[in-house]
Structure formats: structure tokens, C-alpha cells
Design a protein around this nucleic acid. Structure first.
Lengths: 126, 126
DNA sequence: ATTATATGAAACCAAAAGGTTTCGTGTCAA
DNA sequence: TTGACACGAAACCTTTTGGTTTCATATAAT
């Protein structure tokens, strides 16, 4: 399955505080737009647009029931974030950090040598 | 300690692909601006601005050496991201998800009941 | 049949983001 | 001391973002 190459980037999607709030809200239960938007100090339409962005990133799924559209959390894309973050776990090990800084003291030309992850966490195939 | 209430949001800071690339690059070694910008298809000034944003988020630290400024990764703020993400781990447990959806089938009024994390992952003290 | 409800689409707008070029300043090298 | 280098600040421009209001459409309720 891999990454379904979504329309909107997950990193981009969660950058907005309103959208993060939406996610936590929709994690609890599926909800229709009007109910959701009741919790925000902005128009229903604005919330609706945020929901679309989240949907484009695969972070929420919509389901039509009668005249209402209900949204619910779809956590799977967050795994990409988790993967990205996992790389940096290694820096939380202080010993490794110390070692690295020690090495830095020597080589000062700025050449890149060590291995990096997929540089930006997105599958850029070049 | 806690959250030093940084000028720029971590979520915002990592939203840009260029900045994510910068982080992975600076994780490997400390580097001066001109060397860093050599790896990007944009002006040195543009890279410099991205570095400032990262610095404002606490994700990189700068150190002046002679006429050059070297930047290095400062991974600590990523812990906020990790904390945020940790909340959603619970949804990756399929059993819990199944249970929740079952419950949803009953209560359809859209009232919020369950406990949410800090809604948007930022320390909003009100 | 008519009216009310739930929602998305469209047009619009101000502010923020991401870039550029130009300029000033501090530092190193001849 | 003169020039080259490394860098940030400032002014500027274009595109994107986050919001608004208005309108159209589908469904539900009377």
C-alpha cells in the first residue's frame, strides 16, 4: 500500500491549530459539520474548508447520512509523521549527541557525509 | 523548564519541506549558512530566513565563528510533536477503534463527552 | 407543495508565506 | 588598507492561506 500520494501533505495539514483541534474532536466521535462548527469561533463554511483539507490529507473520512455529512478521524496518515519523528529519536540519546559534537570539532569544512533519512519526510522520487 | 513559549510554533515550523530538509541536514553536522544554502535551489537569503524560523521555534541553534554563522539541530522541541502524536497512538489499536465505532452507532446527537488532549498540542493557558 | 435544514461551491478579501534583489556591516586575506 | 567573503536586514513582489458572504442543491419536515 505504501503512501497513497495524497493531495495534501500531512505536515501541512496539521500545521493549523484549528485543524489539530478538529482532529482531536473527531477522534472522539463521528460528527456532522454543523455540530463540529459549533465549537469554533468561525463560520461553518470556514470549518468545512478545514475539513476538506484534512480529508485531502487522508486524516478524516466523510460519510453522508441523509442531509448531513459526518466526519471522523482517520489516523493512518499520522504514521508518516511518526516515521519522520522516529528518525530524530536518535538525537534524544544524549551520548550520541555528545559524540557527534565532539567529532564536529574536527571536521569543519561542512561537507555532508553521514546518511540522512528521506530528507523531508515525503516520498520525493527523483 | 516546560515549554519555553517559543516565538514560532513547532507544527508550523516543520510544515515546510525545505525546513524539514534543513533539519535532517543539520542533524548530521553543524554547518555555516553558505554551505547549507548550496544544497538548495534558492537564494542564500531565502535559506537564511528559513533558518531563522527554525531558530524561532527552537529547532536549531546558531553559533558565530569568525565571519560565519553555523547552525545545528536542536531536537528538543520535537518532543512536543511526539507528545501530540502519542495521543493518537491509541487509535492505531484496532480493537479500540472498533469498539468506538460500535458505540457511535448509538449516540448520534453529536455531543462531546470523552476527554481530549490539549486540543491543539500547544500550551494554551487560559 | 412548501418551507426549513445541512451542506458545498464560488467569488471575494486581507494577511501571511515564501521568494527575490539590494544594501550595510563585520571579518578575514593580500 | 584594500578588497573579498559571509551574513542579516529591508524593501518589495506573488502566491497561498484562512477567513467572509452569498448562492445553489439536496433532503427532511409540515
Amino acid at each position: 500500500m505504501a503512501a497513497p500520494s495524497r493531495k495534501t501533505d500531512v505536515f501541512q495539514a496539521i500545521a493549523d491549530p484549528t485543524r489539530r483541534q478538529l482532529l482531536s474532536m473527531l477522534g472522539e466521535r463521528e460528527m456532522p459539520v454543523s455540530v463540529i462548527s459549533g465549537h469554533f469561533p468561525m463560520s461553518r463554511t470556514a470549518v468545512s474548508k478545514h475539513l476538506r483539507i484534512l480529508a485531502d490529507a487522508g486524516l478524516v473520512k466523510e460519510r453522508k447520512i441523509g442531509r448531513e455529512t459526518r466526519y471522523r478521524l482517520e489516523p493512518e496518515p499520522l504514521l508518516e509523521l511518526k516515521r519522520w519523528l522516529a528518525y530524530y529519536e536518535r538525537y534524544w540519546d544524549n551520548k550520541l549527541l555528545a559524540l557527534q559534537r565532539f567529532v564536529e570539532g574536527d571536521e569543519t569544512d561542512g561537507t555532508i557525509a553521514l546518511v540522512a533519512p528521506e530528507e523531508d519526510g515525503t516520498r520525493t522520487i527523483d
